[in-house]
Simulated scan of single mutants.
Amino acid sequence: MILQKITPYFTLLFAFLILSCSSDTNNSETTPPDPTAANRQSLGASARAFLSAEEFTSMNVEIAYVDGFRPSENTLNNLRSFFTARLNKPGGVRFTETVVPATTVGALNRDEYVEIENDNRTVFNEGSELGVWVFFADQNSESDEGNSRILGTAYRNTSCIIFGETLREFSRGITGPSLTQLETITTEHEFGHLFGLVNLGTEMVRDHEDETADDDGGATPNKHCDQENCLMYFQTVADATSTDMSGLPTFGEFCLEDLRANGGK
């Protein structure tokens, strides 16, 4: 039997918070500030908030999922170890689980998964605790095209989506990797972007942003690391779909330098 390998890729989606104000100084009515606004900023805006204990000494990660798509206990344990190793959160990291209604629109685009977050998210920044949203969806990405598949996307400063159906399709293959391996690598890679990597809110100590030739032959920074052994290398998530990968990838030397310089471990 000949098996065709489908190679996924990672796509960064950026969301920008638009603020407006009224010039009518005679208006006696004021709109109370939105308590969730701090969690609706552009990707990378909260990099230092994740890494250091300056503003937030603890973190609450909302693990949202459609029934049947809950990440495995091993995946959650891997994430706990990942956070402990990289983040300065002396107050600890806790998980809050939220079951989201099944989606009915088919493959999801950005507007649709942002709406799902808006309708279901319950965890936001509160006091000295940073709030995070991670959604394990029951669908694929609408941006999948041909042999390219998207496994996950970080799209706001404290938000990311993991396309659970795509992960399951790869893990069900005869030579497919374990679902835990796919969940762990994909989610940790997306958190790397939330941490501001690469050059996405966390400045580079040494230049190591990967550049890929665009259609005009020019070099285009793509917010990934150019070290092949790094969790943030653009091909790492794609390699996770193969059983050739042994163990779980970690941040490379250059990315670790960046994280530590911005308040992390």
Rank of each mutant, 00 (worst) to 15 (best):
S58Q: 03
F82T: 07
S81F: 12
T243D: 09
N74D: 14
A47N: 03
G106Q: 03
T186P: 09
V93W: 00
I2Y: 13
G44E: 00
R110L: 14
L17Y: 14
N74S: 14
G247Q: 11
E54F: 04
C230E: 10
H208T: 13
R80H: 09
N78I: 05
D239M: 13
F50K: 01
M204A: 14
E228C: 00
T11M: 13
N74C: 07
G131D: 01
S20I: 12
L51G: 07
T57H: 12
F254K: 12
T187L: 14
V123G: 00
N74A: 15
E165D: 11
D138K: 08
G152I: 00
N88A: 14
K223A: 12
R40W: 07
T180W: 08
E62V: 07
G263S: 00
G247D: 08
A49Y: 06
L182N: 08
A219S: 14
N125V: 07
A15F: 14
E183P: 05
N199M: 00
Q41N: 10
Q139A: 10
D144N: 15
P221C: 14
V237A: 02
N109Y: 10
F50R: 03
K223T: 06
G68H: 06
T184G: 09
F14D: 15
L259N: 02
V132A: 00
F170P: 02
F135N: 08
D214K: 08
K223I: 03
T98E: 04
S246H: 15
E55C: 01
N78P: 03
F195K: 01
N120S: 09
G192I: 05
N199C: 03
L12I: 07
H193L: 07
V205L: 15
F83H: 01
D144F: 03
S58R: 06
